[in-house]
Amino acid sequence: MPASTVLGSHICVSDLTRRRFVVGSAAFSGLFAAGCARSAGTEGDASGMRTVTTSLGTYDIPVTPKRVVAIDSRLDLEPAVAMGLPVIAYSFDAAEPWVPADPTAQVFEAPVNVEAILALEPDLIICTDIGEASDMWPLQQLSQTAPVLPMDFTRPWRENIDQLASWLNRTENPEVRQVIGAYEDKAAGLKERHARSLASKQIVLLNYVNQKVNGVNRKGISTQVAEDLGVQLQWPVEGQKEISTENLVTSLDSADGMIVTTAPGVDPVTDDRAMWNRIRAVQGDNVVYTGGNINYGSVYTAMRTLDYFDDLFTRLEN
């Protein structure tokens, strides 16, 4: 994983020069009005600004931002990197090793301290919008620092990238088209190689955290990739509920293979889990452990998830 500078979430900036982003009253007259349309912006003017409409209202953003902060290292950082934006800082967690983030970017603890973001003097902020006020994603406070582009928590990763590209007038951006094209080509190759197994094998997606086994978010990245590939998924529990130890074997016994999201270095097989080792897929070595979070993210996490499915179906075919 690239080395990053981890900063505390309570940095004092009382002695620092504070540059506040000032907008005209007309631009933000409907800033937080409910039901604002999410639409593409108008062409940039001579000042290098461009008017956009988002869930936060209608306002101006820089056509070519120079100092971008991505608040969430998953939903916000990955689209920004794919778009080739100069990300100087992000928060939540250090980027996963498969995300080509700038190793010199500062990493803030979550929830991020708005004063610390202010001290960086960003000209654009990208922040997840979960549809309500949140300390983790403080949209309203951040919008007083710099213009904010909100990523929709409920949208598939492709739609969020397309929306960001539309706002920034980069729908034909070669960098993002290249990375999405690489994903599509890789997915097509996997579907061709494993066509028979994709049609017949039953796969389960799980999370393994703190010796607990849970289901996954049905709208998460791993599920989106599974849908792209036509994977036959089983759902042993509803959503992200925990699978109790006493039900572990029976709940997972019919699965041919599993992809299990784990933290780096965590392996349930050696984690004193006698019941885990009685699961049919585990006994057949038809389980792939991710060593990183594939529940949330964007194109880079989707690309990595293709590797996990490729590994799993290769195991099932050997």
Rank of each mutant, 00 (worst) to 15 (best):
196 R>G: 03
174 P>W: 00
158 R>G: 02
223 T>P: 03
154 T>N: 15
195 A>C: 01
233 L>E: 01
175 E>Y: 10
212 K>H: 14
175 E>T: 14
227 E>C: 00
156 P>N: 14
175 E>R: 15
214 N>G: 06
245 T>W: 06
203 I>F: 00
186 K>T: 10
144 Q>K: 03
196 R>F: 00
154 T>Q: 13
187 A>H: 01
185 D>F: 03
182 A>W: 05
209 V>S: 01
221 I>T: 07
228 D>C: 02
211 Q>E: 14
200 S>C: 00
239 G>N: 11
212 K>D: 10
230 G>I: 11
248 L>G: 08
242 E>D: 12
162 D>W: 03
240 Q>D: 02
197 S>C: 06
159 E>K: 12
165 A>C: 12
236 P>H: 05
223 T>W: 10
164 L>M: 13
253 D>C: 09
196 R>S: 00
229 L>Q: 08
155 R>C: 14
217 N>K: 02
193 R>V: 05
163 Q>M: 15
248 L>A: 04
177 R>S: 10
228 D>Y: 00
201 K>T: 02
184 E>W: 12
205 L>G: 02
244 S>V: 04
158 R>P: 07
237 V>Y: 04
213 V>I: 11
241 K>F: 06
187 A>P: 04
205 L>W: 07
215 G>Y: 02
176 V>F: 11
228 D>N: 01
140 Q>G: 08
221 I>Y: 09
242 E>S: 05
174 P>I: 03
193 R>P: 02
184 E>V: 00
245 T>N: 14
163 Q>D: 09
235 W>P: 00
199 A>E: 08
229 L>W: 05
245 T>L: 14
189 G>T: 07
205 L>C: 08
190 L>N: 10
163 Q>R: 15
220 G>I: 06
171 T>M: 10
195 A>D: 09
153 F>I: 12
144 Q>P: 08
164 L>N: 14
228 D>W: 00
193 R>E: 07
199 A>S: 11
211 Q>I: 11
166 S>W: 11
185 D>E: 07
249 V>W: 03
167 W>C: 08
224 Q>I: 04
244 S>G: 11
233 L>H: 06
228 D>T: 05
252 L>E: 09
155 R>Q: 15
223 T>C: 10
181 G>H: 07
236 P>D: 01
204 V>A: 01
170 R>D: 14
156 P>V: 03
192 E>H: 04
161 I>W: 05
207 N>H: 14
224 Q>V: 07
159 E>I: 05
179 V>F: 07
190 L>D: 05
214 N>M: 09
151 M>G: 13
192 E>T: 06
203 I>P: 01
164 L>F: 06
242 E>F: 00
186 K>H: 10
231 V>D: 00
